[in-house]
């Protein structure tokens, strides 16, 4: 009979036991310190403070909110603001990215080079810096609404973007511009890679069928490229959602910005942290679930 230290099952059990002990010990140590420190600060854990008056004003509000409302309501405003910028951002970033990705493969030299300059130029600079640039240098530097820069139905001024009577605040506009243009560079590369992954024979076959370039792209190449595009694309959507938390840099009241104000006013680090984590995890989970469902519908069904 082999001795027990030669037994794999013993070692598997020991390994599990050791890891459990280590993890529990580490968590216990941290938790113990946490409770000790909180007691020293005189803070009692609980979410009841959310019902008290928030007392701060919020610039962008989707519904009637006043400073005398509760933190709950303020955080809801933040959540809705986040969802607004994420959903619009995803749509616009996809449009920009797909356009730039196709332009990178165009047989027009100038268009191709322009797309390369856009992708290489903007994805290698930090998003935060681009947000600062869009907000302080572009939107706040624009003329006042009376002499706004206008292109038909859309006009730009230091009060933000006016779109068919809809007025978007400069904070929202700057955040949206920064997020979509930055994420667009990554999506462009994904789209280019996806299109290039379609075998040459498919192009040749479609051309020999007499399809025009537009139809060829729409009917033959793009549906096949989509299979390679979707998984990394959903990663970019997640990145966009997470990066939307940089809104605080341009003063847009998204979920993180309001949670951070709540922390500054109440000092409730743990509760605010839990709220931020839970919300962003949920948002990310929902996006990846939706993308997985869509992804499954375009994947090749193999027998």
């Amino acid at each position: 009979m082999a001795s027990f230290w030669r037994n794999t099952r013993f070692w598997r059990f020991a390994g599990q036991a050791i890891s459990v002990v280590l993890i529990v010990a580490a968590l216990g140590f941290l938790g113990n310190n946490l409770f000790g420190n909180l007691r020293q600060l005189g803070i009692q854990f609980g979410f009841n403070f959310l019902k008290s008056q928030a007392g701060f004003t919020i610039g962008d509000i989707p519904f009637a909110y006043k400073p005398s409302d509760s933190y709950n309501l303020a955080l809801l405003v933040g959540l809705l603001n986040s969802l607004r910028v994420i959903s619009v951002g995803i749509i616009l970033a996809t449009a920009i990215g797909v356009t730039a990705g196709i332009a990178r493969l165009s047989d027009n030299w100038l268009l191709r080079k322009l797309a390369i300059v856009y992708v290489e130029g903007l994805r290698n600079a930090p998003l935060l810096l681009q947000l600062f640039f869009w907000y302080f240098a572009v939107f706040l530097g624009l003329p006042s609404p009376e002499n706004a820069v206008s292109f038909g139905f859309i006009s730009f001024s230091n009060r933000g973007i006016g779109l068919l009577g809809l007025q978007l605040s400069p904070e929202f506009s700057a955040l949206l511009a920064g997020l979509t243009i930055y994420t667009g560079t990554f999506i462009a590369e994904i789209v280019r890679g996806g299109i290039q992954s379609v075998p040459r024979g498919q192009w040749e076959a479609a051309r020999s069928l007499g399809l025009k370039p537009g139809l060829l792209m729409r009917l033959v190449i793009f549906p096949q490229a989509l299979r390679a595009i979707l998984p990394p694309l959903s990663n970019q959507y997640l990145n966009l959602a997470k990066n939307s938390s940089l809104a605080i840099a341009v003063g847009y009241p998204d979920l993180y910005a309001i949670a951070s104000t709540t922390f500054n006013q109440t000092g409730r680090a743990v509760e605010v942290m839990i709220l931020i984590c839970a919300t962003y995890l949920t948002i990310c989970l929902v996006i990846s679930l939706l993308m997985n469902v869509y992804n499954r519908s375009v994947q090749l069904v193999e027998r």
Binding site: L34, S245, F263, V270, M273, I276, Y280
Partner: peptide
């Protein structure tokens, strides 16, 4: 989680 949240955690929660 967004990086900004992690950094917030590191600044605020780590001392706790």
């Amino acid at each position: 989680l967004p990086l900004i949240g992690i950094l917030f955690m590191a600044q605020v929660m780590l001392p706790l």
